[in-house]
Nucleic acid binder design. Structure first.
Lengths: 152, 152
DNA sequence: TATGAAAGACCTAGACT
DNA sequence: AGTCTAGGTCTTTCATA
């Protein structure tokens, strides 16, 4: 990965789904060279994918919630985490340091769906000791952008 | 928004940066019709954008942390939230119900950057009463996908 | 790794249903 | 809202440096 790769990634981070040629024009390189680089970045798993960002409010996913989940034993973390990750409404699953705790982020249509999810798919897992739910009243930012260095 | 729109969005959610024609072939419609629909979805802000998902480990953003931030007064929530949202390393800012608390998600290169961020950009805001930091040891899932209904 | 050329695929506006 | 057409643009492979 060099400076050119970083330039490409910066452009894509601003707006994925941009024509290849436009990228190549911006950085002053032949389209085929850019294509090759992007392909390599994908192959090396530096680019992991391309996502649409949909407006959740339009799909009955107006509710964002975080649920802190304490597992019964530290050894249960991995399996529990993987199982939680399979739930469609669960967008994120993180293992937090300090208390045998998983933190998940959920998008649901409302109270009802959230309650059902927690009760029928989370709280009833044998490895789940306790849950604490935090409901977001509003969200000021939601992005997957990361800070890219200027150089390697 | 109808069933066709949902079909299109489902395809894009699986893989944005897919040729338009392929979408149109999948749903059995003329490319121009699909283009028109996508444009409308963008104009209506149902599609908010397209993002690359980069592998954070490759950019010195290996550390994910959540910081719970208590503000001094409920009335300070909005301004504080907006200000936090401007920080590049802050990917998410949510206002949580129940305790005048903002929850943010940070991607940083490591302890040092995280500490510096918290001390020089967060804890020193006059509206910030207290912070609690949770560091993720591992992440099982990170996605922006939402569950789309089958019908409208 | 980059370029340039060439063939084929894709995009998109416009006429029409 | 959708189809079809057609020109222009973009993608992608390959020969070459």
């Amino acid at each position: 990965m060099d400076k050119t790769d970083l330039e490409i990634l910066k452009i894509l981070q601003k707006k994925a789904r941009i024509p290849n040629v436009e990228v190549s024009r911006t950085i002053g390189m032949a389209p085929s060279a850019v294509l090759e680089r992007i392909k390599k970045l994908e192959a090396k798993n530096i680019i992991q994918g391309y996502e649409v960002r949909l407006n959740p409010d339009m799909f009955g996913c107006a509710m964002t919630a975080f649920v802190s989940i304490q597992v019964t034993r530290p050894s249960k973390v991995r399996k529990t985490g993987e199982q939680l990750a399979t739930i469609e409404q669960v967008q994120e699953v993180h293992y937090l340091a300090g208390g045998d705790t998983l933190m998940i982020k959920i998008k649901a249509s409302g109270n009802m769906e959230l309650e059902k999810l927690i009760q029928t798919r989370i709280a009833d897992m044998s490895s789940v000791k306790a849950t604490k739910t935090f409901i977001a009243l509003s969200s000021f930012k939601e992005s997957a952008k990361i800070r890219l260095p200027d150089e390697v």
